[in-house]
Design a protein around this nucleic acid. Structure first.
Lengths: 206, 206
DNA sequence: TTCGGAACTGCAACGTGTTTCTATTATGAC
DNA sequence: GTCATAATAGAAACACGTTGCAGTTCCGAA
């Protein structure tokens, strides 16, 4: 029950004081740096705390578990990339061309930092019920990205996509995540992942 | 480098002596019992060892990690169910009817034991590269089950399914696993899972 | 400026997956 | 039956996620 104990939440939505926002940012920065350097196992809570220059207890006050931490890092990563590339409409003449274009870019981006991808993906897949909120954020980001690609030029900001488009987007994001997992675990090469995704998109969008 | 040190591997494929096969069975039994009782967290290596009546070191000799153990348990579970139901051809007049039938059954089966499903599913999704072999076994089981359903009566035992059928089967199993994960983590109800899978199957098989 | 509570630090401790080591037991070759 | 070797038991120890706590600092309200 939080009833306006602070006054200056003037930037983003209800994240406390500037110092708190800064700590949160430092923690996520440290998380991503460690993940990028050594993957899931290298993201050790003591190391994150030290690198973010906070005490271990404070880290746990901001993120109640390692999984929460990594899924939040995934959400921020998606958010950042979407802020950058989300302005222009997606190129391509058909829905499947556009979706393939977007996923190809996203996949390349993820594969460009294998350790980070491994850490974030495995955390996402391992998350249990207590992480539902953070997971939902990521799911929405994916769905938005994909429905936006399906619609192409016809996409308008506030409008709800159709149920069918959402269903298609969810199927595609399931396949994409599974493909990422199999790449991360060394069961599939980058080309196999690209082929599999492309096949799935062509199957679903026709 | 193992060059025939034993003589009596007369039952299954190269699993050592009868005592060893029995230990392996006891370990998997204990794993499934504990998972069924309390889910992933309840499968504690010391508890598995005790219930299977082996020492902790022996448990690790048979399964090099908790994840290996749980994924192997998943493989055995699939194997058992396929031994039971895999005799008759899958009912249904079209590929999508048959696939939906099979997945509905499988989903109900999994949802009938939520704790076990949670444990096995999360282990499967969390597995890293070192578990590639066991993961591959499970992937093959799923692919076989699905291509068999797609073909229906036309399925013959030894024959390789077509590339397209395999691709379709892989897409569907991706969606099915993702749906199971979201059910396990409380993000989707049983009906939502059923609907999502059905939608995906209809999209892909048409 | 002072005060009270929330947030933070530093550190110890606990639980569970994993590793390691020695003594003991089972197993197959001869 | 004997022996060499592999497998197992039993138990300690380590690593890391997580929790708990005493003391300190920050921050808004009065």
């Amino acid at each position: 029950m939080r009833i306006l104990t602070t006054t200056n939440s003037l930037t983003t939505d209800d994240l406390g004081s500037a110092a708190q926002r800064d700590r949160r940012r430092r923690i996520l920065d440290a998380t991503i740096a460690l993940a990028s350097a050594g993957g899931f196992d290298a993201v050790q809570m003591r190391a994150v705390a030290e690198q973010a220059d906070v005490a271990l207890g404070t880290l746990y006050r901001y993120f109640p578990s390692k999984i929460h931490l990594l899924v939040s890092a995934l959400a921020r990563t998606f958010e950042d990339t979407q802020t950058i590339v989300g302005r222009r409409p997606v190129p391509g003449d058909t829905p499947s061309e556009r979706v393939i274009y977007v996923l190809r870019r996203a996949t390349r981006g993820m594969q460009g930092d294998a350790n980070l991808t491994e850490a974030l993906t495995r955390a996402f897949m391992f998350a249990d019920a207590s992480v539902a909120t953070e997971i939902h954020v990521v799911g929405m980001q994916l769905t938005t990205m994909l429905t936006r690609s399906i619609k192409g030029e016809a996409y308008v900001e506030g409008e709800q996509p159709s149920d069918e488009d959402v269903a298609i987007a969810r199927v595609i994001s399931d396949v994409w995540l599974s493909a990422l997992v199999s790449w991360v675990t060394g069961r599939a090469s980058a080309e196999e992942v690209a082929d599999h995704i492309e096949t799935a998109v062509r199957l679903v969008l026709r």
